[in-house]
């Protein structure tokens, strides 16, 4: 009984922590079905590659992902050769060379994704004062994670609810805190042409790029799940053995 009470107390205490975590942003995004959630979750490789295509062809025009390096893309199922070829499409600044000059060279697998703007001020200047966020960790630093990303990308409304005053150059979004967002609806049907022939609906692209961003924020998720399952199995067996040991040790002690 007392054990139960304290157990409830500690669960409540944990609940408080979660309450704090979700108190930051407005409406709670609905939870989507993802193959990468749950104890045995793994990323959908095809969705990751399509999602990368969406990022590359749509989001990357404004949004950096500076935590990600080209070599990381092996994690979405590309081969080392594919990654090297892909990196070569980009130019990066290196240096200084022996003459003390900075120079341009094709990107390598070890380089970070190039940022669309040299710095935040340049980004703001090009975007009417708004700053397109770095997306490396967006699926972790927003309450709801990839569910929030998906909800945001599919949550634009052409007409705000009556009485809502929209600022100049702003767009109405159901899921953005305060509902006014400076980013226009980035996705429209067939904005990209998927190599695997998947029809590029807004929902499909949103889901794919959300999957990609979830991977970018937690690239170790699959390793974490698979190791976690093994550790748990080990601990269950160990707990059983230790319980049996304890019972045996205590069998002659009245307590």
């Amino acid at each position: 009984m007392r054990t139960a009470k304290l157990l409830i107390a500690s669960v409540l205490a944990l609940g408080l922590g979660m309450g704090a975590a979700s108190a930051a942003v407005g409406p709670k995004a609905p939870v989507q079905e993802w193959p990468h959630t749950g104890f045995f979750g793994t990323f959908d490789r095809a969705a990751l590659q399509r999602g990368y295509q969406v990022y590359k062809e749509v989001c990357a025009a404004c949004h950096a992902m500076k935590q990600i390096r080209f070599r990381n893309l092996e994690g979405i199922g590309l081969s080392a050769a594919e990654v090297a070829a892909l990196a070569k499409e980009y130019e990066t600044t290196d240096g200084p060379n022996d003459e003390g000059e900075m120079f341009k060279r094709p990107a390598r697998a070890a380089d970070r994704f190039p940022s669309p703007f040299p710095n935040e001020l340049a980004a703001r200047a090009a975007n009417g004062g708004a700053y397109p966020l770095d997306l490396s960790l967006i699926a972790k630093n927003r309450a709801g994670g990839e569910n929030y990303v998906y909800a945001l990308l599919t949550g634009y409304r052409d007409n705000p609810p009556p009485g809502f005053v929209l600022g100049d150059g702003m767009y109405y979004n159901d899921w953005f805190a305060g509902h006014q967002i400076a980013m226009g609806p980035p996705l429209m049907a067939d904005r990209v042409t998927y190599a695997d022939g998947t029809p590029a609906t807004v929902e499909r692209m949103a889901k794919d790029v959300s999957t990609f961003l979830a991977w970018a924020a937690s690239p170790h998720l699959e390793a974490r799940n698979s190791l976690g399952v093994k550790v748990m199995l080990f601990l269950f067996i160990l707990t059983g053995l230790l319980y049996a040991t304890k019972r045996k040790v205590w069998r002659n002690i009245k307590h």
């Binding site: 944990l14 975590a21 930051a24 960790l137 972790k140 630093n141 309450a143 974490r224 976690g228 748990m232």
Partner: peptide, 18 residues
């Protein structure tokens, strides 16, 4: 272990990843 492997972000605040 449940938190470490299956719910590592639950006890933290998302803003600290910004």
């Amino acid at each position: 272990g449940y938190f470490v492997f299956f719910s590592p972000y639950t006890l933290g605040h998302p803003d600290n990843w910004i």
